[in-house]
């Protein structure tokens, strides 16, 4: 029982990490119609900038503004210099250009920091593990990640549904031309949305540092799952991204944890493991295929 609870917490934590990335990606895709492969690079930029500042100052908390700032600035710069020229182009051009940015970002980070992964210290207050229930030990840092993710989700909900910018974002994702016709500075809106998405990606990158390795190419590993989230949730829908992230996080973790064990009941050890891993790696893509069959536009398309 405690094992199941722990696995659910693990799934939830993986889910909110996916959400932090998917929120920005789905807004950029939904509102501007841009497929941004460089989103993973913003995740990496946030991780490197935050980790570097944290290491220089010795304070984890100072790393947060650094990560947010660096990622947001990089995002705004990418939007102004490259992506802005691509709105009118087709998706192939966008994919080529943002893929180029991804490659350049990886090389730049290699030039500046080298190939060796960076060490990220964990804040003293959140290290170790706490006993949530009798027999259920869990790292407080992962609990903090869950809390941060849920807070960000709440904040985004308020921003989208309760503010003027949010209203424009919602309008922009439904009918771009009409918003422009009403005299809204759509360019500025785009830059703001891109910057916001970058900021969230940078936050995700930095807080993942103490758990995973801060290294070149870290963004690509998680970007693929993020795209699956965006597609399942429905392009442009924050609510869809939230539901899909948590669902994917929990499903992926539970498949990984339980499938090989279940298969071992019916077949020999190594084969069960190989098959179990195979199916659990496919799990989220199978889910995507099923969702697309039933709802071709994703779970929450068009009512972000």
């Amino acid at each position: 029982m405690t094992l199941l609870l722990e696995q659910l917490l693990n799934g939830l934590q993986f889910g909110v990490m996916l959400f932090l990335l998917a929120a920005g990606l789905t807004l950029i895709f939904g509102i501007m119609g841009v497929i941004n492969l460089a989103h993973g690079s913003l995740y990496m930029v946030g991780a490197y900038a935050g980790t570097w500042v944290a290491a220089q100052t010795g304070s984890f908390w100072l790393g947060i503004p650094a990560a947010l700032g660096a990622a947001a600035l990089t995002g705004v710069a990418i939007e102004a210099l490259v992506v802005r020229r691509l709105y009118a182009r087709d998706h192939l051009d966008q994919v080529l250009a943002t893929f180029a940015i991804l490659l350049m970002a990886n090389q730049l980070v290699t030039l500046i920091f080298g190939r060796q992964p960076l060490y990220t210290a964990m804040p003293e207050a959140l290290s170790g593990s706490v006993e949530l229930l009798p027999g259920l030990f869990y790292p407080p840092y992962r609990l903090a990640i869950i809390a941060v993710g849920l807070l960000v989700a709440l904040g985004l909900w308020a921003l989208i549904n309760r503010t003027r910018i949010g209203m424009l974002v919602r309008a922009g994702s439904t009918n771009r031309e009409m918003v422009r016709a009403l005299g809204v500075d759509i360019r500025l809106l785009y830059t703001v949305v891109f910057g916001l998405g970058a900021l969230l990606a940078g936050l995700a990158g930095f807080i993942s540092g103490p758990v995973m390795a801060v290294q070149v190419g870290m963004g690509e590993q998680i970007l693929l799952s993020t795209f699956v989230v965006v597609v399942i949730g429905g392009v442009g829908s924050i609510r869809g991204a939230f539901v899909a992230s948590l669902a994917l996080g929990v499903i992926d973790t539970c498949l990984r944890a339980y499938l090989p064990g279940l298969l071992r009941q019916v077949m020999a050890g190594p084969e069960a493991d190989a098959l179990g891993i195979g199916i659990s790696s496919m799990g989220i893509y199978l889910l995507m295929a099923i969702v697309l069959l039933v709802k071709p536009k994703g779970l929450f398309a068009g009512n972000g």
């Binding site: 094992l3 696995q7 030990f137 758990v211 995973m212 998680i222 990984r256 944890a257 493991d273």
Partner: peptide, 21 residues
């Protein structure tokens, strides 16, 4: 116990839980 992980895996929380169990 014996577990094969994925070569592109970065989060091992599920495995940690199984080790503890």
């Amino acid at each position: 116990g014996e577990i094969y992980t994925r070569l592109d895996q970065t989060d091992f929380a599920a495995e940690m839980a199984q080790i503890r169990a």
